[in-house]
Structures are given as structure tokens and as C-alpha cells.
Simulated assay, not measured.
Amino acid sequence: MTLLPQELFDMIIDEIHDKETLKACALVATSFLPPSQRNLFRGVQLGGYSRLTAAALAESPHLVSYVRDLTIYMWGVSENFLAEAVILHSVQRIESLLVGFGYWSHLGDEASSALLDCLLRPSLHRLELSDVLDVPAALILAATAIPVVELKSVSMAYLGEDISEQLHAPASAPASRTRHLILDDGGPASFAICDFLLYPRRNPAYTQQIERLELRIGQHSASHFERIIEACAATLKCLAVHATDLIRLPLLPSVLEVEIKVFIGDNRRLPLFFSSNLSQVASSLPLVETITLVFVVTPSPPEVRWPSVAPLPIFGPSFMDRTQLLHLRQVHCKLLRRAEYYSGDMRAVFDCFVPAMESRMPGLQGTGILKCSLVEDWWQA
């Protein structure tokens, strides 16, 4: 075994993704230990109910150098996060950071400061905040320096009645690097995030460099998220929206890909606002090449068929005149199975879905543009 190059051992172990197998490899030989540890500690979860990982990293500080993907759960009290503060200060090559489920104040001053410092690492390319309450404005400001930012049900700390000075970016603010922004409707909590990003006195580059935008738009957040879309219009190349109501799309001259996700109930009928939202694609996205329609369906028994209704306006028989959508190359219809609703065989449901889509888009028949697929798990959509 010693005659084989170490690089070969490293390459083989790098292909192992099961943690129990990696733990076993670490015990085989001295040469197996570093690559096994590197893969075991690439993704680390801190906080929550388990303190084992934080303890292991504290006892063996060299393991921190392997951490690339870090998750921090914030339930608990601030005294519990002192070990996390030390680890956050030590992680130098972090690539992805997820912080979720709790009040920002639970971190305490030491961990809060360490986490804000961590956001300034040049290696960090993705930040996700999920169900985090009362985040400081400084965190949102720092997040604009990260290429991919996802904010799901995030609320900002109260800024007071006169917010102008707090929203004004200081001269030392980091340069904007966000190119991919994901916003999830968190009710009124998401409105403050939009106001913060769009405040007139802030550097407009925070939104005018975004190339990919993903939005989950609720009834009350539509006007706020529409402002975000408009602010990104000049540079936006890909737009994905999951809307529960009618939205308004501005002219998006550079968008090449658009995704519209919609929930379908047991009656298999598209919501009334769907046709209007889709029709805007033709007038607002002159260069669009790919349209993806994701139908999140509650699969009733297979005998519940899709209703026979009129074609969608932009894909009716007149589509072949091609006065609009001149660059369109593909319309991809995805039937998305939500595992929490149904665990049975989706094939019969999908067999009804395909002809239903073809009947709604007669103008695409024979063009090779229309594609239908079944997505079995929600995270693959």
C-alpha cells in the first residue's frame, strides 16, 4: 500500500460521501486520515441541541481548516455560542454559510461579531439566512458583498422612526458582489429588506449587478418584490418567480431564462392569474430563450384528470406567426411532486399531464420546443 502515491488515496476518498464510510477509512492507515477528515469536516453543523461537533473542533483545531460549508442553528442561549465564536474566527476558507431558526440576539455579542467578520472572507460565495429574526442592518449590508444570497423569512431589527442615516451606506461599506439573489416572502418582515436594498441614498450597485433573481411572492409582498425586479432590470439574465397572485413585470431586456412556479389544487385547474402572468413574458422579455413552468400539484388519485380548457394565449395557434418570442427555444413544463402530499406512483398523473399541456399550447406542437418532465422530489425543481 505504501508504494501507491498519496494522491491516489486522496482521489479515491474524495469520491466517498457517506460519513460512516469516511469514519472507517480514517482508521485504516495514517495516510487515510487526512483525506478522510478533510471530507468529514467539509460540511459542519453547529448550534442546535448537539454540541459534539463544536467540541470536536475545539479539541482538534486543525480540523477547522477543512470546513467549507458551515451551518449554524441559533436556538438556545447566548452562553452556548462561545465555542461557535472561536470556530467562526478560525474558519478562513469557508465557501457556504447557512444561519437559521432563531433570534439574532441568541448568538450573543462574541458570536455575532465573529459571524459578521466571517461574511468578509473572500472565499465565501453563498449565504443563506432562514427564519432569522431581528438581524442587524450591518449583516444585510455585509451580505451584499457575497455572490449568492438567500433570505427566507428574515426580519430586520427595528431601525427607529428616522432610518435615513442607518440605511445610508458608509464609505467603508464592502463592494457589491451579489449576482444571485433569492428572496422568500416573509410577510411584513420582508418589506424592510426590500426598503433597505432600495433605499434612495444607498449605492444603486447593490441591485444593478444582479444577474439571477428568485422570488417567492405572496399577495401582500407583490408590490415590494416588483420594485426589486425593476431595480435589477438592466442586468438580469434569469428570473424565477413563485407567485400566488397577479404580478407586474417591467421590461427586462436582457433576461434569457424565466421560470414561473404555480400551485395546482385537486381540481387540476390553473389559477386565474396564471395566464396573465405568463402573457407578460411575451411583452416584457423580448430576448427570452427558455420558459420553465413548474406545476406543484397535490396528486389526487390518477382518475382526476386535467380539465379541457382554452389554449394559453401566447401559445395558441397564432404562435407560429412569431411576432413575439422570436428567440424562444424551449418551453419546459415540470410536474412537481410534493412528497408531503403524496407518496404513491406519479406516473399515471404524469401521463395525464402531458396531453393537458399539449392541449393548452397547440402552437408548440411539431416545433420541438415543448418538453414535459416529472420531478419526483421538491428539492430537484
Rank of each mutant, 00 (worst) to 15 (best):
Q6P: 02
E7H: 08
D10V: 00
I12L: 12
I13M: 01
I13P: 14
E15S: 10
K19N: 14
T21N: 09
C25K: 00
A26C: 14
L33C: 07
P35K: 09
R42E: 12
G47C: 06
G48W: 03
Y49R: 09
R51S: 14
A54W: 08
A56S: 14
P61F: 06
P61Y: 04
H62W: 12
S65R: 15
V67D: 05
T71Q: 14
I72Y: 02
I72R: 00
G76D: 13
S78Q: 13
E79M: 07
E79T: 06
N80E: 14
N80H: 14
L82H: 15
A83M: 10
S90A: 15
V91W: 04
Q92I: 04
R93L: 07
L97M: 11
V99R: 15
G100C: 14
F101T: 11
W104D: 03
H106N: 15
S112C: 13
S113M: 06
L115E: 09
C118S: 15
L133H: 13
V135K: 02
L139V: 09
L141Y: 01
L141R: 10
A142W: 01
A145N: 14
A145Y: 08
P147H: 10
P147E: 10
V149L: 13
E150H: 10
L151H: 05
L151A: 07
S153A: 12
A157Q: 14
Y158T: 03
G160A: 11
L167F: 15
A169Q: 09
S172P: 05
I182K: 05
G186N: 12
G187D: 12
A192F: 06
C194H: 04
R202L: 03
N203S: 12
N203F: 01
Q209F: 02
I210H: 09
R212D: 07
R212A: 08
Q219K: 09
S223Q: 14
A234D: 11
T235L: 02
C238S: 13
A240F: 01
A243K: 00
V255W: 04
V255T: 08
L256E: 15
V258I: 13
V258W: 02
V258C: 14
E259A: 07
I260P: 03
F263S: 03
I264T: 06
N267A: 12
F274S: 02
N277A: 05
A282N: 11
L285A: 08
P286V: 00
P286C: 00
L287P: 06
V288C: 13
P299S: 13
P299F: 10
E303G: 06
R305W: 10
R305I: 02
W306N: 04
F315A: 01
G316K: 01
F319L: 07
L325Q: 13
L326D: 12
V331P: 15
K334E: 05
L336N: 03
R337T: 00
G344P: 12
F350P: 12
D351V: 03
F353M: 03
P355G: 03
M357D: 00
E358I: 09
R360C: 01
G368N: 09
S373I: 07
L374C: 02
V375N: 07
A381H: 02
